[in-house]
């Protein structure tokens, strides 16, 4: 076979790549340069007007972005800590190990929207069971969804509950794949469980931890369904995240051109910031 013909076999993959990745990005860029909205339903060309608007006259987008950063970093840190702890528990030889492994995964297997509706019912300030329960203990009703600060933590609770199992799964897989020798050596040296964790388990888990954290950060930065169902971005704009804001601009207010500008800008920011985060994590967690 002629060497050149080998490239023919790349075409199917290339077409798929162009179709599902390159074309949508190029289309979004083109759309972002148009003023498509409800009263101008066309792909006209307005240059960088939308970008000027975004960078000079849209503090709400930047507020939502910083709010998103807070929510996603907080939830991922909590998921990592709890997920690691749970993985460590079922990594050891304990009773009902298999049962616990399955139980810990249940939240991840549920449908996020449905579960968020249930959480919203739990946290309903006047009709929900959480405040009822707290009332029985003499605690005043907590404004889970109506207080701008508490509402953020409510979103965090739901996100942590839903996605900690994913972190748990990745970290457990990592723990199960660790070599046994370093642990044997540490045991022979008489290392305490704490020192074993700090000097053996954690460093060995670092590459997997970084992967898990980055995957979860990417996912957490797209948080939409939880916010949509739980708070609709409220009260006020207290829990509005970038993706929810883009959704409002695009599909509620029908500013398609401007929503494309927001989407593309957001994509660029996420690529840059996640690359930096990955490098920082690598530097911090992996010691040569």
């Amino acid at each position: 076979m002629n060497f050149k013909h080998k490239f023919v076999f790349l075409f199917p993959g290339l077409f798929v790549l162009i179709g599902i990745l390159i074309f949508p990005i190029i289309f979004t860029i083109r759309l972002s340069l148009s003023g498509w909205n409800s009263y101008t339903p066309e792909m006209n060309f307005i240059g960088i007007t939308n970008y000027i608007r975004l960078f000079t006259d849209d503090p709400r987008f930047w507020e939502s972005f910083f709010r998103l950063s807070f929510l996603s970093v907080t939830t991922v840190i909590l998921q990592y800590v709890i997920g690691f702890a749970l993985a460590m528990i079922v990594w050891r030889e304990i009773k009902f190990k298999r049962f616990f492994r399955v139980i810990f995964l249940v939240p991840m297997m549920t449908t996020p929207v449905i579960m968020t509706v249930i959480w919203r019912t739990f946290f309903h300030e006047s009709l929900g069971p959480v405040n009822d329960l707290l009332g029985g203990l003499g605690v005043k009703p907590i404004l889970w969804l109506s207080d701008p600060v508490i509402a953020k933590f409510t979103v965090i609770i739901v996100e942590v509950w839903q996605w900690t199992p994913f972190m748990f799964l990745l970290l457990l897989a990592g723990l199960l794949s660790l070599p046994k020798e370093p642990f044997l050596a540490a045991a022979i040296d008489g290392a305490s469980p704490f020192r074993k964790f700090v000097y053996v388990t954690f460093p060995l888990m670092a590459p997997i931890s970084i992967g898990a954290i980055i995957i979860r950060l990417i996912e957490a930065s797209k948080i939409m369904d939880t916010v949509f169902v739980l708070t609709s971005g409220g009260p006020g704009t207290a829990t509005e995240t970038s993706s929810f804001y883009i959704y409002i601009k695009g599909l509620r207010e029908f500013q398609m051109g401007y929503a494309a500008t927001l989407s593309f800008t957001y994509l660029v920011i996420m690529i840059i910031s996640l690359t930096i985060i990955a490098k920082v994590l690598t530097k911090l967690m992996i010691k040569e």
């Binding site: 300030e125 006047s126 405040n131 404004l143 969804l145 109506s146």
Partner: peptide, 11 residues
Amino acid sequence: ATKYVPPGGIN
């Protein structure tokens, strides 16, 4: 009025 709606009334 947010002071005299039911708990959660703001939502």
